[in-house]
């Protein structure tokens, strides 16, 4: 129960009505500092030198991951942690940087959310994974973009122009706005949620899309050469030159193609 304050700045507890001496003020302040410290988020930021074609791997337990490009040849990782005692030990490798919150905190029971903001050179490859939480990747043009949410969390990939893109979750939406490179491989998979692919009108790819009947909306990308299989639960066929390979699977949700 919260204490009441009288004009003389003495604290009263309404139930007991006993007077708390002014000597207790520093003690109360100390308690307040300790309690607020325990609930405060901890923010850690680190910089790493990087070439233009760097690879970053991140395995998180829970929390958001935001990756965006910037004009510098270095990586900056900012981690905001719910629990101050979370171990966060990025490891530099020959090809880039590995952050594994799962391995770093294997013996801990409750790690809480760790939210990442990562800035990388635009030609970087990113391999991101989390048990739950949203993943956002913007303006990356490296070889690989992989975003995997084991359970719930939206995935947003915008301005992505990579040769290989893999995005999957169990619950949550997947949004891709980018281009398909000729000969590239693109896979999108969700259990429940909408998968939206926003593409330029002139893109070319071979498609295999699978979802419950009536839930695949090809929009302007539909053409008469496409085949409907399994009572409309699968659409296969080429769009344009058909040189990129695109596989989209949704167990329960919709698949939508939009022209940019």
């Amino acid at each position: 129960m919260l204490p009441a304050i009288d004009p003389q700045m003495n604290f009263y507890f309404p139930v007991t009505k006993k007077r708390v001496s002014s000597a207790a003020l520093p003690a109360l302040f100390l308690v307040f500092v300790i309690v607020s410290g325990a609930f405060a988020q901890q923010r850690v930021s680190r910089h790493y030198p990087a070439g233009k074609n760097v690879r970053i791997e991140l395995k998180n337990l829970s929390g958001t991951i935001t990756v965006e490009s910037w004009a510098r040849d270095e990586i900056r990782i900012t981690a905001t942690m719910d629990k101050p005692a979370v171990h966060f030990n990025p490891r530099q490798t020959d090809t880039g940087l590995v952050v594994d919150i799962v391995a770093d905190n294997r013996d801990r029971r409750d790690v809480g959310d760790v939210n990442f903001r990562i800035q990388v050179p635009s030609r970087s490859s990113v391999d991101l994974e989390t048990r739950s939480g949203q993943i956002t990747v913007s303006n990356i043009q490296g070889d690989l973009v992989r975003a995997h949410v084991w359970t719930s969390g939206d995935i947003t990939l915008s301005g992505v122009n990579a040769a290989r893109v893999f995005a999957s979750n169990t619950t949550g939406n997947i949004f891709f706005d980018g281009e398909f490179a000729s000969g590239g491989t693109y896979e999108f998979k969700s259990g429940r949620g909408t998968i939206t692919l926003q593409l330029p009108a002139n893109c070319g790819f071979h498609l295999m899309a699978t979802a419950p009947a009536q839930k695949i909306k090809m929009g302007d990308f539909w053409n008469t050469g496409m085949k409907l299989l399994g009572e409309g639960r699968r659409i296969t066929g080429d769009v344009g030159d058909g040189r990129a390979s695109v596989t989209v699977t949704n167990y329960q949700g919709d698949i939508k193609f939009l022209r940019r």
């Binding site: 029971r109 048990r131 359970t151 169990t170 259990g191």
Partner: peptide
């Protein structure tokens, strides 16, 4: 038993999505 309630709920919810796909 070691997981927090939020983790248990998330896991169960997502497992039910996959189970629904299997059953379907």
């Amino acid at each position: 038993a070691r997981w927090n309630p939020q983790m248990r709920e998330t896991f169960d919810k997502n497992m039910s999505v996959i189970d629904a796909a299997v059953n379907d």
